[in-house]
Design a binder for these strands. Sequence first.
RNA 1: UGGGGCGUCGCCAAGCGGUAAGGCACAGGGUUUUGAUCCCUGCAUGCGGAGGUUCGAAUCCUCCCGCCCCAGCCA
Length: 564
Amino acid sequence: MSDQDKSTPSHFIRQIIDHDLQAGKNEGRVHTRFPPEPNGYLHIGHAKSIVLNFGLAQDYQGKCNLRFDDTNPHKENVEFVESIQQDVRWLGYDWEDRLFYASDYFQQLYDFAVELITAGKAYVCDLDAEQMREYRGTLKEPGRESPFRSRSVEENLDLFARMKAGEFADGERVLRAKIDIASPNMNLRDPTLYRIRHGVIHHQTGEAWCIYPMYDFTHPISDALEGITHSLCTLEFEDHRPLYDWVLDNITIPYHPQQIEFSRLNLEYTVMSKRKLTQLVEEGFVEGWDDPRMPTVAGLRRRGFTSGSIREFCHRIGITKSDNLVEMGVLESCIREDLDTHAPRRMGVLHPLKLVIENYPEDGEEWLSASNHPKNESMGQREIPFSREIYIDQADFREEANKKYKRLVSGGEVRLRNAYVIKCEEVLKNNQGDIVELRCSYDPETLGKNPEGRKVRGVIHWVSARHGVKAEVRLYDRLFSQPNPDKVTEGGHFTDNLNPDSLRTLTDCYLESSLGDASVGERYQFEREGYFTMDSREASGEKPVFNRIVTLRDSWAKLEKQGV
RNA sequence: UGGGGCGUCGCCAAGCGGUAAGGCACAGGGUUUUGAUCCCUGCAUGCGGAGGUUCGAAUCCUCCCGCCCCAGCCA
């Protein structure tokens, strides 16, 4: 995998690591971690973090752990734990024997909390949530000390032990750090360290605990216990860094990892927040977490993206601290680049129009040889059946057109890809005036060579009517119609920006016969149409279903739009 | 003057005091039995703005402007 990937560009985190290595920090180790909360499926923003963390470990001969940040059992479950592991593996990374859960450390975390209490640096607070908010002050006004802040160490120890023992109800008490209730940094105004949660069954620890540690307490300790050297997270945790450091500075623990923040990925025409993705799934706006329109790793995989193209994308967008909104074109370019070199070519007609070659024998049939790739001979050839009746795409015929249009017109000639030059002799219409069939003639001298004395500019794809495989094809477009779906008018909702045409299902497509035994995981270029792959969920149905991964670049469509 | 960040081409992004990399997009041209691919060419006298320091500033200093994050017993 890694030897196929292009070299990763430098960025500020690599510079920090280089400096650390040069200064002899961390005994020359580089040890990162990817720490998802198992409360949803991974999306391409997580992929950015995965490629960063695991990629750094690879490049510096270091290690990267997979650690589930499972301190809030309320929203978490094993389905997510499993899908996350599958997605990280699919992206090409291996945590070896280093799969951890923050919940592995619940006992140690508890002991560290006791250490803080004993040192007079944490206290049990009886304020309820609303009171605490009030006491904490606002962004511009300092907070007021909790009346419980001055409890004795003995009382705090006793109360905390009873919290653990289950003597108090949810919300009745919390453990708080005693830092600075007037700090300009809200995170330092005596943050909550532990809360009480009865009646939830934790996916890893079951009912062993009824108190659960908060992220800000758990994360630095988990990192330190695992010997993490560089703890990479997104920008919104910048304000938490002083708290991260405070925790490690006030307990007895041998390591103190460095937290470094980078900006999260934003992609045009989609959403990345787990809350919104969850809503799309739960309210049925999409088929599920792996809906091919979703920016989830599972969705991209089902859509047909390769993991290499996603890694390449993550390298192209870079790592910085600036807010960003990346164009879809970057992702599309990555998958096209991959598939152009790797996907075998096939022919598939999406909007069939019947075409009869009148001077071709009624029961005639011949098998024509076609390259699987225009510039990679090692991909070999395939045989394509040709016969008197074929299908071409409706978009490849016009009764009349200007010279820019180089496909088939009445009385005109066109090359059938991998076959003969044909001429349109007659157009058949139904009562409504719709074109229903084309009657043509073919030039038998044009197989594998150009006709003499005239030029045929256009080439169109086709499928033999008798031999073609009937298939369903799903064409995907952007999930939202706005570059930034969060931009809504007063009182609006991001789902208002959903693109009603994000999925178009074509049920009467004809694919060349060799596609009859295509299997899941194979990707093809349907020439002149785009890249396609068999849908993994519909693979057992009687009719094959193909997903369009991405279109080909289309300069003709651009011209047409400009009114040429 | 709550605190913390960020502003370099349409979108990403290098640059770290010596005279603006690269990718995507876009525009021209060439090759082509895919209007694809590929190959050429073009695309910031300019780095949020204004001053200043310097022989020299995107890089240093000052002031100003804009955008993002923080008041969960979420992560």
